[in-house]
């Protein structure tokens, strides 16, 4: 099988081959192949329960695997659907969590500045809105200077307007830090706005991929992606 995105000349930040993950008799990841190049933004779409979170957890080293190989190069950082901030630490301490070299506070302050919360260094997480908390979580991930950033539906619980602002913010942060990104989402438009490449997952495998720049008109990607997700014809379920 051809490895999706397998343009071998650019170095990969993660290369996954024949990945198998099972829960008891249930095979969730079934010989999955995946390769993300340096600085590439990949979105992963698929219906609920198809194994997207499982893939991300396995890549993050949170869950064991039952087969296949995962090769990563460089650091890895994760933003979950919930912000997962420590309620007992102020914002800059939260962001500096895991920073070991260099002046932690300055780095954290700079990262918070970047996500527009530079004036809230000493504030508690409980005083933040959902969008602000998620921005802190993104700052905490980026301050690690990851080669691969894993995002599991990070904007799913935000309202539509906040989500659009977060898209813009994320794009500018990615442009500045240039990590490889794997974004799990169920929002087709989000994936088109953000990603270079869109992967469709089904039955524990990646079944299709779309390179957004191959399309002159982004609306046609939408048609194709919706079709791959099972909404044939209309281009959109609406």
């Amino acid at each position: 099988m051809e490895i999706p995105g397998g343009e071998q000349q650019t170095p990969a930040v993660v290369a996954v081959q024949g990945l198998v993950r099972t829960y008891g008799p249930k095979v969730v990841l079934n010989k999955l192949h995946l390769r993300i190049r340096k600085g590439e933004f990949v979105a992963l779409l698929g219906e609920s329960g198809c194994g997207k979170t499982t893939l991300l957890r396995v890549l993050a080293g949170l869950d064991p695997i039952q087969g296949g190989t995962i090769q990563t190069s460089g650091t890895l950082a994760v933003v979950f659907q919930e912000h997962r901030l420590l309620p007992w630490e102020n914002l800059w301490r939260n962001v500096s969590l895991g920073l070991r070299c260099g002046p932690a506070k300055e780095k954290a302050a700079k990262a918070l500045e970047e996500v527009g919360l530079g004036d809230r260094l000493d504030d508690w997480p409980r005083n933040l809105s959902g969008g602000q908390a998620q921005r802190v979580a993104i700052a905490r991930a980026l301050v690690q200077e990851p080669a691969l950033l894993l995002l599991d539906e990070p904007f799913a619980s935000l309202d539509a307007l906040t989500r659009i602002k977060m898209h813009k913010l994320l794009l500018s942060l990615i442009a500045a830090h240039k990590p490889g990104v794997l974004l799990v989402t169920h929002d087709v438009l989000e994936s088109i706005v953000l990603a270079d490449r869109i992967l469709i997952m089904r039955d524990g495998c990646i079944v299709k991929e779309y390179v957004v720049n191959d399309y002159a008109d982004k609306r046609t990607v939408q048609v194709d992606v919706f079709e791959a997700l099972g909404f044939a014809g209309g281009g959109s379920p609406y």
């Binding site: 080293g61 949170l62 997962r84 969590l97």
Partner: peptide, 12 residues
């Protein structure tokens, strides 16, 4: 446990 997971992804 979610916070512990977060700690492990931050390599504490």
């Amino acid at each position: 446990p979610k916070l512990l997971e977060m700690g492990s992804t931050q390599r504490l």
